[in-house]
């Protein structure tokens, strides 16, 4: 019979953590930087202000956590969508590699940029 799977448990916990932080922060950030500023509804913040905020250690930690967890959230949901939605169960191993490999690569990129 099937074995208890701790990797699935960890993947689910990270998926959930990513689900929470992305649900809390993604809508407002996308609303501001993707819609409101580009459409000119409000003036975008000055560069100096952006840098002051982005260089603050607390912002950096929060941003990195947001990026890493959101990517792990994506990886978990996306691999399930591919397995089941498209019935690609045979390709389980490469799909997992693609999703979690992508999430790890993206996290490294985010770390380099945020602290760069």
């Amino acid at each position: 019979m099937a074995k208890r799977s701790s990797s699935e448990a960890v993947a689910w916990l990270l998926f959930s953590a990513g689900g929470v932080v992305s649900a809390l922060l993604a809508p407002i950030l996308l609303l501001l930087f993707g819609v409101i500023f580009p459409l000119g509804v409000l003036a975008p913040p000055e560069h100096a202000h952006m840098e002051a905020v982005l260089r603050h250690p607390l912002t950096q930690v929060v941003l990195l956590g947001l990026c890493v967890l959101s990517l792990l959230h994506w990886a978990h949901r996306f691999r399930y969508a591919l397995h089941e939605g498209l019935q690609l169960k045979r390709l389980r191993a490469p799909i997992n590699l693609l999703c979690y490999g992508g999430a790890i690569a993206g996290s490294l990129w985010a770390a380099v940029v945020v602290f760069g």
Binding site: M1, A2, K3, R4, S5, E8, A9, W12, Y80, E84
Partner: peptide
């Protein structure tokens, strides 16, 4: 029951 439930064919299959 944990050994039966916390498997890839158990709760972790549910989306």
């Amino acid at each position: 029951r944990l050994d039966v439930l916390a498997t890839a064919e158990g709760i972790w299959a549910c989306t």
